[in-house]
Design a binder for these strands. Structure first.
Lengths: 226, 226
DNA sequence: GTATTATTAGAGTATATACTCTAGTGAGTC
DNA sequence: GACTCACTAGAGTATATACTCTAATAATAC
């Protein structure tokens, strides 16, 4: 594997684990057992590393949210979108944590992220539209649909932050993909009042699968705990 | 005014304006034209300053969310809660921006914030309950109500972050209280499907008052722009 | 082989950051 | 006037951070 790619990979790993703010270029170099000079041969600065990681993230989500227009949407499709988006969120979870700071320090990133957000919002809105066409939810007028989509976006992108702040553990690193996916429960909660009688029970059953457990926050299930 | 209070006030101002991450204790001292030594006479460290500011914030919100149990809830009450909460969010807007980092660096803050969150969630849930009692929204079972409350909390606490990242301007400082209060539109969107026929129109009218304008993001209306 | 280019090490630098230490000052008390 | 004590100035420190520079080595092209 090329040094350049190793830097990207290690950076992502360290950022996710400790937060971008707590990871310096020297840390990244040390973690890879290469010199800082070497790192700066491949990247002009820390922002460049972050920007490239964002491009990967963007590509991944854009790929997930590519909605086929040649057929109707199914419940399985919806479940797949939700699962995929939360998987992406998990893999690049450092990103939303320091988002504001990152956007302030890199105009390219600000611009790109803005467009990315708009694409995602459009995709969510389109999903709602197709869910209505498929008779899964009641159809809504455009204004309500876009406000709902924005709420879905807010819940999705900030569920992780909520979990971390709600955790009692001193280190917020202790989090599992399973817990993260309880965000799906929250997203489906938004849909509940709009479900058609025909699909109501099936969606409620799907939602139930993601219901947060009452106990056992941080157990052997974890992938990040240490 | 006492130096100690001036430090708290200036810190809050600078944090709100530039973000906690971009404000050092030296900046604060310089801004007040006092020596760093003086600042450290009054506060052991930066975390202590932040913690005290949080205590003020907490007190403010707890005061706002004190729900009178001796009478029914009105629409005006609900509007007041929303306005108040967003006012508080505005006055201490630096806080949610770097929340995760702040909680990671101060266990007291983590613990207190956790309890604060739970009180807020309980208050939101209680508001829903009383809205149902007053016939403004349809009553819901406890499980749905608490999931809804959590969504409301997510939308409220992260609306600001969304606005900042959606802004095209390079500095995310450019934001107005008016824009922030469009978050109320988003929160009321969550209630829309639960409204009773009796109140539907009145709530929709209230909601309309906060509808985001399509144009003119950053104009003379602004209090932070510079 | 030789020339060129890509890659790497590692010491070094300028700046910043949180915080400390010492030496006071000035207002009140006896 | 001596004493106390809350308060303040300002120089100073240890460490960190992002990043640079030079020189060397490995890979590739001709």
């Amino acid at each position: 594997m090329k040094t350049r790619d190793k830097i990207l990979l290690s950076s992502l790993e360290l950022f996710n684990e400790r937060g971008e703010r707590n990871v310096t270029t020297n840390h990244i170099a040390a973690h890879l057992a290469i010199s800082p000079g070497n790192l700066y041969y491949h990247f002009r600065n820390k922002s460049d590393i972050i920007y490239e990681i964002f491009l990967e993230y963007e590509k991944l989500v854009d790929f997930y949210l590519d909605i086929p227009e040649d057929r109707a949407m199914t419940l399985d499709d919806m479940a797949f979108y939700l699962e995929s988006v939360f998987d992406g969120l998990w893999s690049y979870r450092f990103f939303h944590r320091d988002l504001e700071y990152l956007l302030d320090s890199d105009p390219r990133l600000r611009q790109d992220y803005r467009e990315f957000t708009n694409r995602c919002l459009a995709a969510i809105s389109r999903i709602f539209e197709k869910l209505a066409e498929a008779g899964i939810i009641e159809p809504q007028e455009e204004g309500l649909r876009s406000a709902m989509s924005l709420n879905v976006w807010l819940v999705i992108t900030n569920w992780m932050a909520f979990l971390k702040t709600a955790h009692a553990a001193e280190a917020s690193a202790c989090l599992t993909l399973t817990e993260l996916k309880q965000g799906i429960y929250q997203v489906l909660t938004l849909e509940v009042p709009y479900l058609t009688p025909a699909y109501r029970e099936r969606v409620m059953a799907l939602r139930e699968k993601y219901r947060p457990a009452l106990h056992g926050k941080c157990d052997q299930d974890s992938e990040v705990c240490k």
